[in-house]
Structures are given as C-alpha cells and as structure tokens.
Amino acid sequence: MLPGEVRAMHELSICNAIASTAVKHAEGRPVTQVKVQIGHLRQVVPDALQFSWEVVSSTTDLKDAQLVIEQVPAVVECLDCGATTVLDLAILACGACDGFDVKLLSGEELLVVSIDLVDA
C-alpha cells in the first residue's frame, strides 16, 4: 500500500465516525453543518478530511452538510519550570526549558462539537 493511500483511508475512517455521530444526533432532521475539533497530535490532514467528507457525506443523509474543522494546537504544561507552551513539532518537550516532564493540555481532540439543523 502506498503511504498516500494509508493517509486518505485514515481520514476516511474518521469521517465515517463523524458521519455516524452526526446522523445519530440529527434523528432524521436535515443537517447543514457539522463542526469538529481535531488536535494537532492526531495526524489528521484537514484537506484530506474535507475530501473524505465529500465522499462519505454524499452516501448519507448528510450530503448537504458542510464540515467545519477547528484545529486545536498541542499545548503542554511543564512540570519542571511551570511554563505553558504551544508545540511546533510533535516532540513532547517544554518550549521554555526543553524539559520532557510535561503534561499535555490539548492537542489530542477528536471531537464532534455541534451540528446545525434546519428548523422544522
């Protein structure tokens, strides 16, 4: 399998999960927007997720629903120096003192935040 295929399928799996969550909560009502939060540490490529959404949503009741992706930066709190820093790389180190003893505050989100429905 080519690396590109693996990646696309990764986003496709995630889109299937987004779609089933949205359909469950919509209870048959038309959906216009699905908003998700994806943490930077999740290795999700937003463009690939949007493309996958076109494929997945077209086969479901969600074909008119727009996917809105909120990306959440990876933020760590250093347990040595106490600094809170945003990661540029996926290396879990403090941006202030380079220490590795850090607590992850955000960046692992994989969340359906909300759906917008057309009022009956």
Binding site: L110, L111, S114, D116
Partner: peptide, 16 residues
C-alpha cells in the same frame, strides 16, 4: 443562519 438550530454534541469520535 435564520431557521436553523445548533445542537452541541461534544462527543469523542472514537467513543463508540
């Protein structure tokens, strides 16, 4: 937009 309702879900995609 007018005529729409937002439902807050906050559900982890991998919860199932």
């Amino acid at each position: 937009e007018t005529g729409q309702t937002r439902i807050t879900i906050l559900e982890n995609l991998l919860s199932e």
